[in-house]
Amino acid sequence: MIHEVDDVLRALLRAEVLEGAQIAVVFDAPTRDWAAKVNAPTVNLYLYDIREDMRRRERGLHNEYDGHGTVIARRRPPRYFKLSYLITAWTKRPEDEHRLLSSLLACLLRYEALPPERLTGTLQEIGAAVPMSIALPPPEDRSFADVWSALGGELKPSLDLVISVPVTASPTYTAGPPVTDEGLRAGFGDHPPEPRARRGGGLPVYGGKSVRPAPAPDAEGAASDSGPRRAGLSLRITERRGGGGDDG
């Protein structure tokens, strides 16, 4: 993934800035020992920092479909990583270096992302944009002076190029079979459920209209609302009121 970004940057600068000029494009660390060996005009793109772009992180899963539109698998969304390049120009005269940096800046300002027609390999297969920014202020936890101090070289004018690269290296989760209308049906409301053949004495459906069994007939043949009688103790209490006199 990183080497593919290197190839795109090299091809872009050679085609739109250098235009066949005898200027090398390298990705070496611009240390003091390296600078002492430079004997030809050179553009250096040093990759000095790699960190995740937290602003572009997504949650959830992305679906993968077959030719019939059925979900067959799910995958995590791509995660973006910021590649920070320190761009410097190396010539014999500072004026030539400034002129070259000016051309580099004008070229990179034309794009908000790497040109899609120049993407190859994995970057082309993903099909997502590869955003980039040029010459923005560095984050608070890092300064270019610190980078040069770590390299052990002398401070030079430079451009900071940041490219957010999508990475899709994540496990794939196989999806279960699609849900169909076969199986349990639930109905809600006062309407009775649609008639349907029962399989092996199924249980009643939650939310459906309950059907009470017909009342069992009593001894006289009339249907009783109280259902079948059960053995037990019954007690009847009556009250008799006299006509007016005492019985005693």
Rank of each mutant, 00 (worst) to 15 (best):
T120M: 09
Y85R: 05
R99Y: 12
Y85D: 07
A113F: 01
R110Y: 02
L104F: 11
K82N: 07
Y85I: 04
T91L: 14
T120E: 11
L100K: 13
P116H: 08
L101C: 10
T88F: 00
Y111E: 03
R118S: 11
S103T: 13
E112G: 15
Y80R: 05
P115D: 12
L100T: 05
T88N: 03
R118L: 12
L119H: 05
G121A: 12
E97G: 10
T120W: 02
T120N: 11
S84L: 01
L108E: 10
C107D: 08
T122P: 01
E97V: 11
C107Q: 08
L123P: 01
R110S: 10
G121V: 06
L101H: 11
F81Y: 14
Y85L: 00
E95Q: 10
E97K: 07
R110W: 03
L114I: 08
L105I: 12
A113T: 00
L101Y: 06
C107G: 09
T91S: 15
P115Y: 03
L114T: 10
G121S: 10
Y85S: 05
E97P: 01
S103Q: 15
L83Y: 05
T88D: 00
S103I: 04
W90P: 02
G121C: 09
E97Y: 09
P116I: 09
P94K: 06
I126S: 08
H98C: 02
L83T: 01
L114D: 09
I126H: 06
T120S: 13
L123C: 06
F81H: 12
L101F: 07
P116E: 15
L109G: 01
L83G: 00
E97I: 03
E117T: 00
H98E: 08
P94Q: 11
P116K: 11
K92M: 04
S102R: 12
L83P: 00
L104K: 10
L83C: 04
L104V: 06
T122E: 10
F81C: 07
K82C: 08
E125P: 02
R110E: 15
I126C: 03
L100N: 09
L104M: 14
Q124E: 08
G121E: 09
I126T: 09
L123Y: 04
P115T: 05
P94H: 02
E125A: 14
E125K: 13
Q124F: 09
R110F: 02
